[in-house]
Design a protein around this nucleic acid. Structure first.
Lengths: 243, 243
DNA sequence: CGGCGAGTTGAAGAGCTTCAAGCCTGGTGG
DNA sequence: CCACCAGGCTTGAAGCTCTTCAACTCGCCG
């Protein structure tokens, strides 16, 4: 549960008792291969799933096959806390890479959420953050140009990867295909490709099939109006300090 | 707290004790006029706000003034449950009409959430639903045409208004301006206008500045691939029955 | 070595935006 | 009481971003 501990610790200083509580939540580990559909919309859920290793993507498809990725899931991300109250999934999840996840019994999670300690608050936090990612996704796809969207998404993923120790200061693994990026940003793969090439030619990024390097992160951030305030990282630490 | 009770009751059968608990949550009533900014991004939050009467809209603006509405708030909607863990708002809220809201102390809400009764579950539910609305908004704006987006949004609002008794079977008050609809759907007001007129000419809807009537709801729903499954209404009732 | 998935590039076309102008309605003040 | 003004709605015309259709390349795995 390394990525999860790492992520929760980012918000809340967990002591040994908290870590022990977290251990009891662990549940079973399930491995998965790339491109497998872990959850299918309409399916009845029976466990809370937590990403352990690898990347995945929430998505919905329209009748005629158009696909929209809602959010990318990184290690440490929790999906379907909604299983606690909802019977069926309203969207699907597909894996991007090989990896593994924890499947936790809803009852254990519900018990943990009834508490009020640092662990509970940290969990709440991941949910608040997840919602902020969705909101940012709406702004990006609703009001930004293709170039801005791509830059913004890449910077968000980089920051999120850093939080769980999966990225260096100016580079990270990027296992997404250009089609997946396009489906995230409401674009066609063709246009996504053209814009990515343009960013490379402009000397802003460098990339291959598995990695991306940010050559001028500040210029990129300014170009696409990226302000990581919605991560609420500082705010939370301030609040902790205040208690 | 009529709309809130109405909404929570839709998911969970609240008995008198639950209603009494809810009453203690009531907090203070604040009135507002149309077009006032209730919450400004970056502002520190001190209360959980619940819509009582009137409509509002969450939104974010980019540096250069482009505006994106994230979600429309109807009576019974709860905003900023995130105040429980986050210090500052990451988006703004502006009112659409005159109205009023409840301001509830975070401590009271936190206590309520630590429970596990029908009231707590119903609150969780509103949050799950809210997240589903955000996801649907992403699909709409990412992969649907202007005409589909508009039809889909109108049908969603109608369904939500019905839940809190603010709409009849085929009509509802619609206080949004075309510019606000455009800002919700990532379109220009000009194009929004053109498409709305087209829907009217096609005999699908009838509207004026304050009202909309659905003349052929089924045809409209089919045209824009509207499936209210993401409201999770049935799923929840099933789960309740199962306990 | 053959084939498949992913990436790349070109050319034509559609949907939506931008710029521009006029209209309608409700509220305000002389 | 009515003229005026502002905000919202409506319509036209031109233009740009992104899409669609098409073809070709590259790298990898069987």
């Amino acid at each position: 549960m390394d990525a999860l501990i790492r992520r929760l610790s980012f918000y809340s200083d967990l002591d040994d008792a908290d870590r022990a509580d977290l251990a009891t939540l662990r549940g079973t580990i399930r491995n998965f291969r790339a491109h497998s559909e872990i959850i299918t919309a309409g399916q009845e859920m029976d466990a809370v799933l937590v990403m352990r290793e690898g990347w995945a993507a929430r998505f919905k498809t329209l009748e005629d096959g158009r696909r929209q990725i809602l959010n990318i899931l990184l290690p440490g991300d929790i999906f379907d806390l909604q299983v606690l109250v909802a019977a069926e999934a309203d969207h699907s999840v597909v894996t991007v890479t090989d990896g593994s996840l924890y499947a936790v019994a809803p009852a254990a999670v519900r018990k943990m959420l009834a508490g009020s300690g640092p662990l509970t608050m940290a969990f709440w936090w991941t949910q608040v953050q997840e919602e902020a990612f969705l909101r940012e996704q709406i702004v990006r796809n609703g009001r930004q140009t293709a170039q801005e969207r791509i830059g913004h998404l890449l910077l968000e993923l980089h920051r999120r990867a850093q939080i769980v120790d999966q990225a260096s200061a100016d580079a990270m693994p990027l296992p997404l295909t250009q089609t997946q990026i396009a489906d995230t940003l409401g674009l066609t793969p063709i246009h996504t490709n053209r814009v990515l090439r343009r960013l490379v030619r402009a000397g802003l990024i460098e990339m291959n099939r598995q990695w991306i390097r940010f050559l001028a992160p500040d210029r990129l951030a300014e170009m696409c109006d990226f302000d990581p305030g919605y991560f609420h990282l500082d705010a939370f630490r301030m609040r902790l300090a205040r208690r």
